[in-house]
């Protein structure tokens, strides 16, 4: 069964297992996420739940969104982000329900989706791990792009050529992270390893596609 929640990256630390093995973990504040709307096969042609997370001032939310939130009785306390989460079959929950971190359990695998940290306009050495030129023996070609193609045939630069440009700040998924611990009473999820984005960034946690 597919499941997922919205959360916020809190930062990294490490914990010790019972046998004393150090495990690097990322702490995620996960939920509680109110169910704002349902998408069903009959009505929309696909199954999903619309979830909210966080909080925002009422004056910063448009009246159209507030009217939509009124269905879940949240017009006085609007969430900061609203996202849809696809499901296998029509959702069993109802509008206005609160989903919390207890839908996940320790020792299961999750995928975490976030926006990676922006690196600005980056060259090919940083962006694509090009080797660059040599620094010594008169090398005046240290971090440059090099040849970007052939001559009169084909007479053009192929699409998808790796060149300098904007790096980072794009949607990024890390798959198959182990859930080390869940604390539903504190809305806390600890996953092993790093996740994309800065501390405080919004993330989507869902069960692993490939496990």
């Amino acid at each position: 069964m597919k499941k997922g929640l919205l959360g916020k990256k809190l930062g990294m630390t490490h914990v010790y297992t019972e046998t004393g093995v150090m495990v690097p973990v990322t702490a995620i504040e996960l939920g509680p996420c109110p169910v704002l709307d349902l998408r069903t096969q009959a009505k929309d042609g696909y199954s999903a739940v619309q979830l909210g997370f966080g909080s925002r001032k009422v004056k910063n939310v448009s009246k159209a969104v507030l009217g939509h939130l009124a269905k879940a009785d949240l017009a006085a306390n609007p969430p900061a982000v609203i996202r849809e989460m696809r499901m296998d079959s029509d959702p069993t929950c109802a509008i206005g329900d609160q989903l919390s971190a207890d839908i996940f359990a320790a020792n299961e695998f999750v995928d975490v989706v976030g926006h990676s940290k922006g690196k600005g306009f980056s060259g090919v050495v940083r962006r694509y791990n090009f080797a660059g030129g040599r620094a010594s023996h008169g090398g005046a070609w240290t971090r440059r792009t090099g040849s970007i193609g052939m001559c009169a045939a084909p007479g053009k630069v192929y699409k998808g050529r790796k060149m300098p440009g904007h790096m980072g700040n794009e949607r990024c998924t890390v798959q198959n992270l182990l859930v080390v611990e869940v604390r539903p009473e504190k809305n806390l999820l600890l996953v092993k390893g790093a996740i994309p984005g800065p501390t405080g960034g919004m993330v989507i946690v869902r069960n692993a596609v490939k496990k």
Partner: peptide, 16 residues
């Protein structure tokens, strides 16, 4: 934001 910082701080303190 301050309260959120303390969550990760608390987590670090637990294993000290």
């Amino acid at each position: 934001m301050e309260t959120k910082k303390s969550v990760i701080e608390e987590l670090r303190q637990e294993n000290l």
